[in-house]
Simulated scan of single mutants.
Amino acid sequence: MSVSNEPTLKPERPFFSSGPTAKFPGWSLDKLKTESLGRSHRSKIGKARLKYAIDLSRELLGVPDDYLVGILPASDTGALECAMWTMLGPQPATVAAWESFGNVWIQDAVKQLKLKNLTALDADYGEIPDLASIPQDNDVVFTWNGTTSGARIPNTDWLESGRSGVTINDATSAIFAQEMDWPKLDATTYSWQKVMGSEAQHGMLILSPKAIERIESYDPDWPLPKLFRLKKGGKINQGIFEGATINTPSLLATEDYIAALEWAKSIGGRQAMFERANENARILEAWIEATPWISNMVSDPAKRTNTGVCMVFGGDWYESLSDEDKAGVPKKIVSMLEERGVGYDFNGYRDAPPSLRIWCGGTVDAEDVKRLLPWIEWAFEEVKASHAN
Rank of each mutant, 00 (worst) to 15 (best):
S17V: 06
F380L: 15
E285F: 10
V140H: 00
C360N: 14
N306P: 09
A109W: 05
T21D: 00
S322T: 15
R357L: 11
L207T: 00
D325S: 12
W263A: 06
M204K: 11
M180F: 04
S250R: 00
Y349H: 15
N138P: 01
V364E: 06
S266P: 00
I106L: 11
K184E: 01
K114Y: 07
G268H: 05
I128C: 07
E199R: 15
T245K: 01
G19H: 05
A211G: 10
L88W: 09
V383P: 03
Q238R: 15
V369I: 15
M297L: 15
E279V: 09
L113F: 03
N347Y: 01
V309F: 04
V69G: 01
K331Y: 09
K226Q: 14
K184N: 00
V312Q: 01
P92N: 06
R214F: 11
S335Q: 12
Y190L: 10
K231P: 04
G70F: 01
D55C: 09
I212K: 12
E339F: 05
W293M: 04
L205Q: 03
S191E: 04
W105Y: 14
V141Y: 13
N5D: 12
S2F: 12
L337W: 07
V141Q: 08
W105G: 02
A259D: 09
V141I: 14
I294R: 08
A109C: 14
M87E: 04
R340T: 10
N103E: 13
N247V: 12
P25G: 12
T94K: 07
Y257T: 10
G162V: 11
F16W: 01
I71K: 02
K232L: 02
V195T: 15
V369T: 00
I288S: 05
E324C: 03
D316A: 15
L337K: 06
G348L: 06
T172S: 14
P7H: 08
K114W: 07
I376M: 07
S217R: 13
A123C: 03
D170T: 02
G314E: 13
R304D: 02
S355F: 02
A211D: 05
K226A: 13
E12P: 00
E289P: 00
C82G: 00
S57E: 03
E99G: 06
Y318I: 13
D256L: 04
A253D: 12
M87S: 13
